[in-house]
Design a protein around this nucleic acid. Structure first.
Lengths: 344, 344
DNA sequence: CTGTTAGCGCCTTCAA
DNA sequence: TTGAAGGCGCTAACAG
């Protein structure tokens, strides 16, 4: 690979001059600029980012850690972040933690070694490495949490408005005349899950109802586990809910499978609303009513906040930004069956 | 961020010694090692990859360019590559070209500047930048093509065995008794698409049939376009195929929508087999028979080949490796209806 | 405007 | 085993 020196030699100028035409840092006469550009083309010169970073101690690189980018939600977040980064001349490194706290620690460490200037973190399930995150931030590396927000961590964060998103779902089910609405959550160690459960409670209360503890089913994000649990709970027709709200994708899939396994149908026997799309396209049946998160925008806004912190230099605006974006409800068949309508 | 020098000072040793305990390059006495490790911990020292890379001119970083990682297939490829890279201590930078040749050129250039040691490339639709790729390779950067393989480019490549994958689909449809099997392809400028079409022809021929040119429908990867085209073609009941094979995901979705729009059902009115999964889970209806690519393995093997080239130093094994992995057929409802069975 | 030069942090001989 | 020192490619003063 040619170096800046070789370009300079070929163009018959000094390295400083080449640097100036590349970075536009100082005006360069037309004739020299042309010569330099010709040399660059002829040599197929590509500035060495590594050397530049070492010199300037600016890598213009961001990192993002997600649990698993094969979950359809995350690629959208990543692309949103990538777009925001690119708009300001930054690159983005995306890595997967597999929801493994150990791996997450390694990745955080790796990103530090790579000297990324900021990190977007969707914390993995399990204990949040608070100490490590604090060290990162006091080392001057900006960090913004996305999607999954850890407790007790005064840090910028961007995610969906969980409470109102859940309310959206429950309000809808209530409006459709459902009386016994069950909620199937992921692990309640995750704050998001607790918030969604809170939204469930609030929506019921606002409607003058009380949540029946028998209808609060704490699951996890393993589809099979959820299926097993729900199959059990759906057994007794007398205690069966007439609608189910599931607070995340894998869980929702588990619920749906349990419904089928139990010989039930949706929406006829039990209505269903899930968080996050289960299918690529609503051509497929059952078409499940879904709370849709603005994934791309979450990534985009998070990266923007991160970049503002980075470019802002000093700890401009010490107060953590907590951005919560609204979800939307996509009503489909699985909740269209209305008891109220039937009664009329 | 502390430097190696600060660690050395704190531990009361020379920087060389610290470097040695970090890299294990030279044996270091136990007592000194311990002191160094303590200093590293106390200072929260993270070796500067940037400086190391500059010194060694090895970044231990790979890049992968995909058209769009929100297409479910690609995250699996990326994760496969990531795993292979990690196993050898490499990092992976994944970027999206949006199937835009201009963007693809920029990204190639960016990765060069970042001094990645190897590139995994799923070429974008449109003209392949042969000249640029050649320059990259003659600059000593290894490159392996994945998934989409460009023509006339003597380079390592890993992808699915397109011809036999298509044959798998057609053989199956023939076995189910279908007579008039249409094929809906993506743009035939892509080699993969041509290969899949070839498989279609071969399977028919082997069965003693000739492809009817009226049943070869060239589409593109825009779902809506394909829907429009198919709607048109499905209009005349007399000329309607009794089965359709679609050679990629977005196209398949378009076909399915057209079938529905035309008031037809699958498999009753027309059987359907697509390339690549359309849904997350076969709970959904219609359950479409699918040719499934080993996405993870494609990424994994491609990265392994790339790494072998890199570590191999010299142009070990000048001959390009052309690896084609077999697809599998997931038979589901959309092709289960058998005319033969009905006739019996 | 243009040329010269001192490091950025680290690894790696080479000497001790 | 340990320590000292050069230099990777580049930018940013600074001097001309």
């Amino acid at each position: 690979m040619p170096t800046i020196k070789e370009v300079a030699d070929r163009a018959g100028v000094a390295v400083g001059t080449v640097s100036h035409v590349i970075n536009g840092s100082v005006p360069v006469s037309d004739s020299l600029r042309r010569k330099v550009q010709a040399a660059i083309r002829e040599l197929d010169y590509h500035p060495n980012h590594v050397a530049r970073s070492l010199k300037t101690s600016r890598t213009r690189t961001l990192g993002i850690i997600v649990p698993d980018m094969t979950i359809p939600y995350f690629p959208h977040v990543i692309r949103g972040a990538e777009a925001a980064a690119r708009a300001q001349g930054y690159s983005l490194i995306a890595v997967n933690s597999d929801d493994n706290p150990g791996r997450q620690k390694e990745l955080l460490s790796l990103l530090r070694s790579q000297r990324v200037e900021g990190i977007l973190l969707a914390v993995s399930a399990g204990p949040t490495p608070l100490a490590q995150i604090n060290r990162i931030m006091s080392a001057g590396i900006r960090l913004v949490c996305v999607d999954r927000i850890p407790d007790r961590l005064p840090v910028d964060s961007v995610s969906v408005e969980d409470v109102s998103a859940a309310e959206l779902a429950i309000d809808h089910l209530l409006a459709m005349g459902h009386e016994r609405i069950a909620i199937v959550t992921g692990p309640l160690t995750l704050k998001n899950e607790r918030q969604r459960l809170l939204g469930y409670h609030q929506a019921l209360e606002r409607a003058g109802k009380r949540a029946d503890t028998d209808l609060i089913w704490e699951g996890n994000i393993l589809t099979d586990d959820v299926t097993a649990m729900c199959r059990e709970r759906l057994r007794d027709p007398g205690r069966r809910p007439d609608a189910i709200f599931s607070t995340n994708g894998p869980t929702g899939l588990g619920v749906l499978r349990a419904i089928y396994d139990s010989g039930l149908r949706t929406p006829e026997d039990v209505a269903l609303v899930t968080f996050d799309e289960l299918t690529v396209d609503d051509l497929f049946r059952p078409a499940v009513t879904t709370v849709v998160q603005p994934a791309y925008e979450i990534g985009h806004r998070a990266a923007e906040i991160l970049l503002r912190r980075i470019e802002g230099g000093g700890d401009a605006g010490a107060e953590p930004v907590t951005l919560r974006l609204p979800a939307t409800l996509k009503v489909r068949d699985s909740s269209r069956f209305s008891y109220r309508a039937v009664a009329e």
